[in-house]
Design a protein around this nucleic acid. Structure first.
Lengths: 207, 207, 207, 207
DNA sequence: TATGAATGAGTTTTCATTCAT
DNA sequence: AATGAATGAAAACTCATTCAT
């Protein structure tokens, strides 16, 4: 009865192939046929499952980014401190890179940082992540955990900007990316950013 | 009356035109003819002065980035605290954007963040900026002004990543970019990052 | 009714069209679109089958030249005199022109005589023909049929040079190229060259 | 008074430079600026003295070819046998190559054999050489020195074709081109072609 | 579902030639 | 006579996408 595998399989094959091809050559530099070759399917089949080359990347991005958004939301729902929340968010993103570096490379390089092309398209989703992080900060400010003289929107940018720079550093081999480095980098990132956001002598929590 | 206008003039016209065309349409989306049209010169003249479309962008980037490197170096040479140094660096970059938003947009969007194409080419220069910032941090750590448990290289990434995110926010209209916002953004950025890097209760300056 | 026309067909169409376009306009003067138009196919299809415009000509040349090499080899294998062998070779080349003047025109004008471009590329194959003719001469010298005081390599050049000049004459309408002229030209060519190579009074066969 | 060298000098400089540039790169592959660079003059000066890039080559060809025509004419006027005349013509051409290989290379490769471009333009002059050689043959036939069953026009082609092939062989390094080879090649060429044209047993001088 | 042949729009780059000085 | 800046036409090649089978 199942003489034939469900068609979904090839669709997945194509997506997975695209991850590696995009990571290797970059979205613009690769041809649709490169994806098909890597997936071991015929050329035109990509167009059977996807409307265009763009759509392949879009789908890859959305698939992953929605996981991120869900993760942030879940983290935010937990009863833990703001520092712990941001630490969890950073951990999620860094782990994404740790376990699927090619996919994250594609998302960072070809979407998130490619602000003129795909970044533009996905700005709303990207922005959504900023906002959720900003919300974590704002809540902490209300709770007195974070100082109030730094706008949550800006705090979110410092935090996300630092993470993106970190991942870029790994992607482009600017900094060592061994197993041991992941945790250490995250700890220092959270320590610095949260340290800067937490109240201290001479900095009243209420701004 | 001037016997002859210096030929350099048209070369400059082309570079300036390129800034606006690149900023408006993005490097890849624009054609060489767009640049020539904007500059009001003949198509081939672009190739008289530049080897390729790429070289136009490269020159634009290098021209500006070397100013940044010089500025950081100068700032680092002054007898001021680390926080003041980083504040000056942030100010220089933000002022660059304030006075030449199109040029900075091109540099950020088409070079610095376009890590797969031009970013790759200019990685050494970009890295140089990171290193100079890291040096400021390292010196402060030795002086006891900054805590020692955050690697200077990482501190540099948090700082630069935050600035890049800020400029991206302005470039893509994610955050308001009025005159008043420039100073406030810089203050908060420096306050957060340096705040996180400075020693405080329970954080011994020596790591 | 035929389930599917073999894809090879269009490839052949393109090659045939190229023969006529090259012959009419010359390789350099014609555009790829001229070939496509003549073949009645879309522009891009030329590039589907051939890597470049050059490759089209290369293929045309190699296809035909290998027939020539095979013909010379076959002729050389027969048990006939040297004069008969050279006559057969001349006949083969002249017949090639007689039946496919456009193709031969292309080969002579755009490859064989275009020594700086394609001739350079195909020098080894062209040289091979010289060598095979030289071998016929050398064998005849050993057999005493041809005098030994003319290097076979030179004899080969006199023979091939005469043929090439003859074909050029037809191609450029320097001499009449009617049906009757083909045989007569060949006879005179062989008579002159072989006559000059054969021993006679006062010219000892052993040089 | 002669503070300034006559302008003709630079014109000659350009022509001489063109010889070497054409020989090195080929007419089509070189740019006008290459000629100017080699001549050590400015770009536009080439257009002051010559109407176009083509005209430079045309002039080079005509200048030399007219010497050849004159030489053949002179040779033909002497009271010597046909074999001696043809030997003198061959010697003239081979010596031209011997003493000015670059110029002859240009003439052979870019004009004489480039039948589609410049060859076409200079066909009348080239043809003139054939005709003069044919006349030498025809006269010899009338005098009984050469057999009459080979058309003078064809005999001329065999002779000229052999020479052209010989020069091509040197130009493209197909055959050794040392000092000693020049005389030997000429002797064999004349021996073969004239040998084939001279009457012998069984070949009545009157065809 | 699967294949890959067929389509054709789009852009960079080259370089001969002109022209102002 | 001399310079070299300025012009702009021309064409190869790529590759996303469509479509017949």
């Amino acid at each position: 009865m199942d003489a034939k595998a469900p068609p979904v399989e090839k669709r997945r094959q194509i997506l997975d192939a695209a991850i590696h091809v995009f990571a290797r050559q970059g979205f613009h530099a690769c041809r649709v046929s490169d994806i098909a070759d890597e997936a071991g399917v015929a050329y035109g089949l990509v167009y059977h499952y996807f409307k265009s080359k763009d759509q392949v990347l879009n789908e890859l991005f959305t698939e992953r980014w929605s996981l991120l958004l869900a993760a942030i939301e879940e983290v935010d729902g937990e009863s833990i401190g703001a520092r712990e929340k941001l630490d969890a968010v950073a951990r999620f993103i860094i782990d994404s890179y740790r376990y699927e570096p090619d996919l994250m490379k594609v998302i960072i390089v070809d979407v998130t940082r490619a602000a003129n092309s795909f970044g533009r398209t996905h700005l709303p989703e990207i922005r959504r992540a900023y906002e959720m992080i900003a919300k974590i900060v704002a809540d902490a400010q209300r709770a007195g955990t974070f100082r109030r003289d730094v706008d949550p929107e800006f705090a979110s940018m410092w935090f996300y900007g630092a993470i993106e720079q970190l991942l870029s550093g790994w992607v482009f081999d600017l900094i060592p990316g061994g197993e041991a480095d992941f945790d250490r980098a995250r700890e220092m990132l959270v320590e610095t950013i949260c340290g800067g956001l937490e109240p201290r002598d001479g900095v009243p929590a209420d701004g």
